Amino acid sequence: MTAKTPLGDFLLARRSRLRPDDVGVDTYGERRRVPGLRREELALLAGVSASYYTRLEQGESASASAEVLDALAGALLLDESERRHLHDLARAGRGRRRRQRPAPERVSAATRQLLDVLGDVPAIVLGRRSDVLAWNRPGHALFAGHLDPDAPQLPRERPNMTRLVFLDPHVRELYADWPSKAAAAVGGLRLVAGRHPEDVAVHALVGELSAKSAEFASLWADHRIRACTVAEYEMRHPLVGSLTVTQQTLSSGPGPAVVVATTPPDSPSRAALTLLARATAHSGLPAGPVRAGARAGRE
Score class of each variant (00 low, 15 high):
Met1Gln: 13
Met1Ala: 14
Thr5Asn: 09
Gly8Ala: 12
Phe10Ile: 08
Leu11Asn: 06
Pro20Glu: 05
Asp21Leu: 10
Asp26Thr: 10
Asp26Met: 01
Asp26Gly: 02
Thr27Gln: 11
Gly29Gln: 03
Arg33His: 14
Glu40Trp: 03
Leu42Ser: 01
Ala43His: 00
Gly47Leu: 10
Glu60Val: 10
Ser61Leu: 07
Ala64Lys: 02
Val68Ser: 07
Leu69Trp: 01
Ala71Phe: 04
Gly74His: 02
Ala75Trp: 12
Leu76Arg: 06
Glu80Ile: 05
Ser81Trp: 04
Ser81Asn: 04
His87Asp: 02
Ala90Asn: 02
Gly93Trp: 00
Gly93Tyr: 00
Arg94Met: 02
Arg97Met: 06
Arg101Ile: 13
Glu105Trp: 02
Val107Lys: 01
Gln113Cys: 09
Leu115Asn: 05
Pro122Thr: 07
Val125Ser: 11
Val125Met: 08
Gly127Arg: 00
Arg128Asp: 11
Arg129Pro: 13
Leu133Gln: 09
Trp135Asp: 04
Asn136Thr: 12
Arg163Lys: 09
Phe166Tyr: 11
Pro169Val: 12
Arg172Glu: 12
Arg172Gly: 14
Leu174Glu: 00
Ala183Ile: 02
Ala183Lys: 09
Ala184Gln: 13
Arg190Phe: 10
Val192Thr: 14
Leu205Val: 10
Gly207Arg: 07
Leu209Ile: 08
Leu209Ala: 04
Ser213Ala: 04
Glu215Ile: 08
Phe216Ser: 06
Ser218Arg: 15
Ala221Pro: 07
Cys228Thr: 13
Ala231Asp: 14
Ala231Ile: 13
Glu232Leu: 10
Glu234Asp: 15
Pro238Lys: 03
Val245Thr: 14
Leu250Gln: 01
Pro254Tyr: 00
Pro256Lys: 10
Val258Pro: 09
Pro264Asn: 02
Asp266Lys: 08
Ser267Asp: 00
Pro268Ala: 11
Thr274His: 13
Ala279Val: 14
His282Cys: 07
Leu285Trp: 05
Gly288Gln: 01
